[in-house]
Design a protein around this nucleic acid. Structure first.
Length: 502
RNA sequence: GGCGCGUUGGUCAAUCGGUUAAGACGCCUCCCUUUCACGGAGGAAGGACGGGUUCGAUUCCCGUACGUGCUACCA
């Protein structure tokens, strides 16, 4: 196939953009960038009952955050629009009619009750070649009656007429050759009673009209591949059919099922790229973005979930991914999502990031707690604590004491070390600090050491209490560094308060 | 139930018939550090099972088991 490469990402706007969705989009993006093609975003909003307003804008926002913006979409434009299936309604009906005319599809007038009755007779019964001649459709009804029913506007659908007894084979770019027996495939609905197409008709028509050359989608679509294959054939477009690649699923960390929103809530990690608020319930699901992931790290992590370049390299920039990516190396088996590993990727990127971008990124996570903070303070704090942070949100947990007095103090830890001489020591040190002319990490430390020597006590006995009074617990960077940044006033205040309470 | 797809340590995974079966995350130990992290050194932990093919199978084939997906006028 010599056509220019065109891939499409086709999410349904029914909720947040989850990990599997982003990864599919990412592989589309990497593939098109590598082969100099076009990356199309098409929206599958044919199911009006599940359609959620604002979801399309949300999806585009997520892709932008990830740095994998599509070349063609409702907002980006392009010559193959409209890019929303709901706006292409007329096209699908036209091709469905064409299939009926060619004898590859038929009108079915069965009511929901009749369908239920059919299935009640045999739980495994599908609407297929074994039973279609016993149903109410244009295959069995006289032409005149069909015409009358259609004229009267009786609700009906159009179903594909599967030819039994054939073996369909196609080559999946990831899985190799896959075969199906058409006798086992049912007569899927192509056009619904409301005039909207089902996914089956819509993908084929859209991919054809948008001249898609490579179609990537989740593994869950594999069983319906024969329907799509036949549709390409029946519509007479077989030569233009894209190559297929069915991507492995992203699985929940425990158990083996597909990763779902519920798993995120249950296990305490995000499953969406960015915050998603369900307009119906008002419930907000935290995204990787808001949780403090850097987009580069997020994308890197996702790329490695089901693919690797065969070397031991794990950290890839987007550009490197584009170079190294190949569908042949995508795994066949699903991969369990591991939040710990995801955090590790982000930690790597935080360590690599320069302090000036970190200051920019970290600010909202700090200001969320204490209001406005100065650049100067952030510039001092960021380098001191970045190496102990995996998520942007960690900057608050690891450095809150730089911005406000600790709210809780690990009193028990102090008490273990506490006695009259430590009490004396700190009282004396407070006076010494007051005399200090230059306030810096070094001068504070010097003053501390001098007093330790003068009082003849063990430094270990007073270091920990000092830390805890200053930061609240047994963590954080060097105490004197902290004292230097926080300033004399705050140090004295924190010591006084805690000296008294202990 | 039927059909499809899959199966290397707890997790991500390398190996494209011959290896002491890499590496990473996590876990454990030690070092560094008068806190915690970072960093460094080390450790435990793996080919689902049964048949073939072959001089030789983790690798190729078949079967079984297990898992998972689909089986809607949802995608």
């Amino acid at each position: 196939m010599n056509r220019p490469v065109r891939t499409r990402f086709a999410p349904s706007p029914t909720g947040g953009l989850h990990l599997g969705g982003v990864r599919t989009a990412l592989y589309n993006f990497l593939f098109t960038r590598k082969h100099g093609g076009t990356f199309v975003l098409r929206i599958e909003d044919t199911d009006q009952t599940r359609f959620v307003p604002g979801a399309e804008e949300y999806i585009i926002k997520c892709l932008e955050w990830c740095g994998i913006t599509p070349d063609e979409s409702t907002t980006a434009g392009g010559n193959y629009g409209p890019y929303r299936q709901s706006e292409r309604k007329h096209l699908y009906a036209q091709y469905a009619q064409q299939l009926v005319a060619a004898g590859h599809a038929y009108y079915a007038f069965d009511t929901p009750e009749e369908l239920a009755q059919m299935r009640a007779a045999n739980a495994n019964q599908q609407y297929d070649h074994t039973i279609r001649m016993q149903m109410r459709n244009s295959l069995v009804l006289p032409d005149t009656e069909v015409a009358t029913l259609l004229a009267q506007g009786v609700p009906h659908v159009i179903r594909i007429k599967m030819t039994p007894g054939e073996t369909l084979t196609f080559t999946d770019l990831i899985r190799g050759e896959i075969s199906f027996d058409t006798s086992l495939v049912d007569d899927k609905v192509l056009l619904k009673a409301d005039g909207m197409p089902t996914y089956h008709l819509a993908v084929v028509v859209d991919d054809y009209l948008m001249q898609i050359t490579h179609a990537f989608r989740g593994e869950e679509w594999l069983p319906s591949a024969p329907v799509h294959l036949l549709l390409w054939e029946y519509l007479g477009w077989k030569e233009k059919m894209p190559d297929w690649a069915h991507l492995p699923l992203i699985l929940k960390p425990d158990g083996y099922g597909k990763l779902s929103k519920r798993d995120g809530q249950r296990l305490g990690f995000p499953v969406f790229a960015m915050n998603w608020t369900d307009p119906a319930t008002g419930e907000t699901m935290t995204g990787f973005c808001e949780r403090g992931f850097l987009p580069e790290a997020f994308v890197n992590m996702l790329a490695m979930l089901g693919w690797n370049d065969g070397t031991t390299q794990e950290i890839f920039s987007l550009e490197e991914l584009v170079q190294a990516f190949s569908l042949e190396r995508v795994h066949k088996a699903g991969a369990k999502f591991d939040f710990e590993k995801a955090k590790w990727f982000n930690q790597q990127y935080i360590q690599q990031a320069s302090d000036d971008v970190l200051v920019l990124l970290v600010r909202p996570y700090i200001e969320e707690h204490v209001g406005e903070v100065t650049d100067e303070l952030l510039w001092q704090v960021v380098p001191l604590i970045k190496e102990r942070c995996s998520l942007l949100a960690d900057f608050w947990d690891q450095g809150h004491f730089f911005f406000k007095d600790p709210e809780t103090i690990d009193v028990d830890a102090i008490r273990e070390k506490w006695n009259d001489s430590t009490q004396q020591f700190f009282t004396a040190w407070l006076e010494a600090l007051d005399q200090l002319e230059v306030w810096s990490a070094e001068s504070v430390e010097r003053s501390f050491n001098e007093l330790v020597a003068a009082q003849g006590i063990k430094k270990g006995a007073v270091m920990l209490p000092l830390r805890i009074m200053l930061v609240g617990g047994k963590y954080g960077p060097g105490v004197f560094e902290i004292a230097g940044v926080v300033g004399k006033e705050a140090v004295v205040r924190r010591l006084r308060r805690n000296l008294f309470s202990v």
